[in-house]
Design a protein around this nucleic acid. Sequence first.
DNA 1: CTGTTAGCGCCTTCAA
DNA 2: TTGAAGGCGCTAACAG
Lengths: 331, 331
Amino acid sequence: MNISMIAQLAEVSTATVSRYLNNGYVSEQKRKRIQAVIEQTGYTPSSSAQTLRTGRNNLIGVIVPKISSESVSRMVDGITEVVNNAGYQVLLANTGNNTEREMEYLKTFRLNNVDGVIFIGTLMTKKHLALMKSYKKPIVLMGQQESDVSCVYFDDYGAAKLATDCLVRCGCQNIVHLGVTLKDKAAGRARRGGYLDTLEANHIAFREELIAECAGFTTQDGSDAMAAFLEKQIPFDGVFCATDTIAFGAIDVLRRAGIQIPEQVKLTAVGNNRMSAIYSPHLTSVSLSHRTGGLEAGAILMDMIQNDNDAVRTAQMQCRLYERESTGAAE
Amino acid sequence: MNISMIAQLAEVSTATVSRYLNNGYVSEQKRKRIQAVIEQTGYTPSSSAQTLRTGRNNLIGVIVPKISSESVSRMVDGITEVVNNAGYQVLLANTGNNTEREMEYLKTFRLNNVDGVIFIGTLMTKKHLALMKSYKKPIVLMGQQESDVSCVYFDDYGAAKLATDCLVRCGCQNIVHLGVTLKDKAAGRARRGGYLDTLEANHIAFREELIAECAGFTTQDGSDAMAAFLEKQIPFDGVFCATDTIAFGAIDVLRRAGIQIPEQVKLTAVGNNRMSAIYSPHLTSVSLSHRTGGLEAGAILMDMIQNDNDAVRTAQMQCRLYERESTGAAE
DNA sequence: CTGTTAGCGCCTTCAA
DNA sequence: TTGAAGGCGCTAACAG
């Protein structure tokens, strides 16, 4: 079932059918005939032929480190919404946090199919940047901030400030930071920066020994880091965790150690996962607006594609503090 | 940069280049020449042209109700792993729990692009089934069990039995069931069936008033249902929740009502989310093996596609009970 | 407003 | 083992 069959049945030329399908520069009479035939036959134009002919695929590639992460899946949720509404489909590449695979997909997508790419980044290497900058198709980076590339990023620094400041306001003076690798500029470096600057702004001396680096982003990593810190027997009255997930692990360890939250130790984090509002204790956390970021990234990419707009654009999402039980807030 | 440029540069015909790219029925000498040219130019064949010509896309469609759900994103994680390893890409359709959109994507995918489809189902209507059975491309249904369609489903009934039985073993006699709509045959009907049959097997009389139906699958729905039940002032000593997410909502309400878990009320659920093992109390839950299900569905689909195997195949995933604090287990 | 026509890039017989 | 040639289904000039 192809366009010439339709043309034959409707007794018009293929060009007219094509016009019907696209511009719509067709007389009312023939329009009706074509419409009837298409409905009867259930014809759909072959997208591969369309692509071959026009060079457009109505396809965008989305590269993610791990689709089963809550923040990532929320971003993808936002992306799909915008992009589908614009008539585009999403090609999903799940790299499993493997940097080489990221590069691979970036290349696979490049000359190949897609009209544009959204890349949800974690650790950005020089190779990544070089590849992105030399990209021929529109590309939007999410979650990391880099120059010369359109990006939608989250206010990691501001979020960390809010979370740390909340602890300070609650009277904490010895605030532990459970962070992640500084190679991750967003979740690692920027959040640590917010922590440090807030201490300084409040005239609290920074103490190296209060910083613990988690091996990764899982609850287990949070538990391990918290447990290791407890062994050092350093007194503390507050914990600022780089992510909610890490916080859940840390809380579990504190609970088992018989340390009361928020009575003895107060705790904040960044992410505002679904669980935060119902975890016990309800977790004070800063929302980064992941889904909104996905909407924004999708919108920027659509603009780049549909309007041939190759200007570099950036958008920073707003963050918001939700104070809950873990800092003694009445909800 | 296309195949004829390569052919020209390598001083062979396009047919030879094509053979090089596919079968490989090429003399050593020319093979080397072609290889050199391709490496220099960084040429990649146009997948749309290939598709147009061969009818193959190396693309599979995955239709999901909500990508940001933990169980769904885990299944997708499994699917992408298998399918990518087989050289296929995943086209993701996120329907936002909208049945009409599901049908729409099913149709969009049908004649169009993809070589096969994996459909993660919730509420299956007759229309869905009719469409799936008349599908021309290989299709695998996940999460629901239907005849005449290949499906990978979870042992919802067995999981509910394990979870309910665990409560009975712990001495519960008045077990509340926080369930979901029976229209969902898996999470609704099958889990309720497991609950009922376990009561019967243990000679515990079924009481209608102990069943509460949640409006949906969110923690809020769990909270609401639990709160509504508490208002009825019916004594109870156990709660079996259809999902972990619902359980988290329920626990939150119980906690606020000053009801101790597991001392006064014991609680189990199905799903074994990441959070279950660290929620407070650690939640006794049954794992359904979502990610493994994704691997399995991907493998079945690949077999159907690559070997033209159109036999209907089904696979049931195994479930496993994890006993934790919420039923008083020592971990 | 409509039809004719020439490819988009590739694969695959067919003949050599 | 190779090359010539036709066509997959569609769109976009171009001419009417």
